[in-house]
Amino acid sequence: MRWITPGGLLRGGGVFGLLAAFPFVERTDWIVNIGVFTLMYAGLATAWNLFSGYTGYISLGQAAFFGIGAYATGITFEHISIGSGYRPFYALPLIGLAVGLVSVPVAWVALRTRAMTFAIVTLMLLFIVQQLAFNLRSITHGSQGVAVPQPTFASNFDRPYYLAMLSVLALAMLICWYVRRSKLGLMLLGIRDDEEKARGLGVRVTGAKLIAWALSVGLTAMIGGIWGYYLFSIYPESAVDPLVMIGAVLMAFLGGKGTLWGPMIGAFVLVPAQQWALTSYGATRLYLIAYAGVFVLVLLLLPRGIVPSLADLVSRRRFRATDRPDVRPTVERVAS
């Protein structure tokens, strides 16, 4: 597999070029605001995919690290000046690195379980972190929340946040793309197919899973940091929100977990739809029913998600005429 193909470069450059241009062309605040949340979920789903999509371990706990990233940013800038307003953005890589590293021992324990148990253990982690946010009042101010200083960006207030979200999404996509083409990616896909067998072939499964986990968590924490700064106030119930988790996982399933573009596409379909419903029907939690509906539909109609199904369709067309044996390239290859 070559590192860079002209098609891939064109696709990546084109999509991210258009996304970067968007807030300069479209300046309506509420639309850019939807853009910020779309990119946020795209980033969360992509980061989730980096661990869960590639290893097959379904984590329901990444939102805990979203919250930790938000709190880390908020608490840091309670004490440090935000300067002209951009300083919190520059601090993000450090926050991602720190949260990623700190989460490794937690993952080391959680990864002693498999499948359903792992999903539930990580879900517990989410609720534990939420409880900590409520109860460690001296640090988090409990249910009062952390107030983050507000910047005074001259005009187009949402644009810096949009571009920050876009940068983290680009970073997440770049890491996913790189991992998929590296030996680490091969190890992870081997683990997903048959972890016991991989162990029997000398693959250092624990190390590989921990690296993917740390990368995924670090990206998630950075996104949480931007989110906290965007909203100014960080509360336990909104920073560590199971619904954020469910949203991100659903988008990855819809687009195609384990593919490069799938999670991002899932977010680009669902988030604007949800925001549109929100503005049309008011701020109800009806969208949860819609989420459930989408989930059922995905499981019934597109069990592997949009990207693999489309890729399958394309390759079936291409190979129908020939009577070669089944030498179709793997779905991932076509899709990534």
Binding site: K183, L186, M187, L189, G190, R192, D194, A198
Partner: peptide
């Protein structure tokens, strides 16, 4: 490994030092 190609199946089994990941 059913989702990997035959070549990938074989390459997974090469002993790799960490720095090559």
């Amino acid at each position: 490994f059913p989702d990997l190609t035959l070549v990938e199946n074989l390459v997974v089994a090469i002993q790799q030092p960490w720095r090559t990941i």
